[in-house]
Simulated scan of single mutants.
Amino acid sequence: MKIRAIAAIGLAALAAISVTACRDSRGGAAADNGNVTIMVGGIDKVIYLPAMLTQQLGYFKDEGLNVSLKTEPAGATAENSLISGDVQGVVGFYDHTIDLQTQDKCIQSVVQMADVPGEVEVVGTRQADAIRSPADFKGKKLGFTSPGSSTDFLTQYLATKAGVSTADYTGVKAGAGTTFISALNNGQIDAGMTTDPTVAQLINSGQAKIMLDMRTVDGTRAALGGLYPSSSLYMNCDFVAQHKQTVQKLVNALVKTLKYINTHSAQEIADKMPADYAGGNKDLYVKAINDTKAMFNADGKMDADGAKNVLNVLAQFSPKVKPKKDRIDLSKTYTTEFVDKVAG
């Protein structure tokens, strides 16, 4: 019985390895044939607009790629799809590459689309007089996307920088979009961090006011003391090394889109996006894009000092990064190899 049990375990392990190998093989072969699947951490968020805009403009197709875009509500869940090998890339926050290095996983940003978070700290109108800055966070309920998310760490940083301990406020998982709006209206949160188009909807309806705006370089420097690279396309290091031609094509397409964003109006950009992204209010969607588009750079290159600032924030508040901060090799979390080769 013991021999058969051991044999069964061995066969099961071999089968699991075979399945994984087949999946990796299919993924690599598909990529070499121009088929790429990318997970976006909230495909309708304006901070990740370049992914769908590239698709809509036909730039992926121009590069000979057949890109399938999928979505998860948050970057923290999107990264799981990459780790499991279900997708070849993720459009999400750069800080996940640092977080994953602490788990001995090599993930690289191959095109850095934004040097600032694009996040906004909004306060419910009823609390606007009581919460004027992070110094007023004590005793309040603060919303973020999910525990361990970029918005969670940034909230902790803002509070601590203002002299408020993370134990002095209550962090609440508020999600994004309708769930965030509902949490604010129902009193589940007093304030919280979110992005457009949610910000535009809240401000336009009078439900909230902006306390901190990290959609611009100046606003980000004022809030965080430096840049905070965010929206990126990140991929497994092995995939990047083995499929350079495919990665170069992806980067070519995305950088072309970044240039489009920097040379076209919010109205022109909105006109290219899927109609349902406007949520029935095209004018408000145009405003959301207009208020956020300044976050996107035009060349896809990483700001080295910004990357250091991201590590500084995570080293203080991420339970995974904090004990390993001195062993983090930032040079492995991003590469400019491909953006440096983009023509023009």
Rank of each mutant, 00 (worst) to 15 (best):
R215T: 15
Q56M: 15
D190C: 05
V313I: 15
D190P: 05
G225E: 06
D218C: 01
M1C: 04
L184I: 05
A241F: 01
G118A: 09
F144D: 00
L258N: 06
M235N: 02
H243N: 15
A307S: 10
Q242I: 00
I189R: 02
V313E: 01
M214G: 12
K256M: 07
A191F: 05
S109N: 13
K61I: 02
A128C: 03
D238W: 00
C22R: 09
A16N: 05
T20C: 06
F153K: 06
V240W: 03
L227G: 08
N185R: 14
P73W: 04
N290W: 04
A176S: 15
F296L: 07
K140E: 06
V310R: 00
R23E: 14
K322P: 05
S205P: 08
T220F: 04
M52S: 12
K324G: 05
D238R: 11
G192H: 04
T335D: 12
V111E: 11
K70R: 15
N297C: 08
N33F: 03
Y277G: 06
K308M: 10
V321L: 07
F338D: 00
G306P: 03
A307E: 09
G148W: 04
S230W: 02
V286L: 07
I203D: 01
P50R: 03
F144A: 10
V110C: 08
G139F: 09
G187W: 06
M52I: 13
G64M: 11
G28M: 11
M39T: 14
M302N: 03
G206S: 08
T179F: 02
A5V: 13
I328H: 04
T194F: 03
A223L: 03
V111N: 08
I3T: 10
D24Y: 13
I261S: 00
I17C: 12
K325D: 02
T333N: 15
I9V: 15
Q101S: 15
A162N: 06
T220M: 04
I269E: 06
V123K: 08
D340Q: 05
G175D: 07
H264S: 07
G143R: 01
A222S: 13
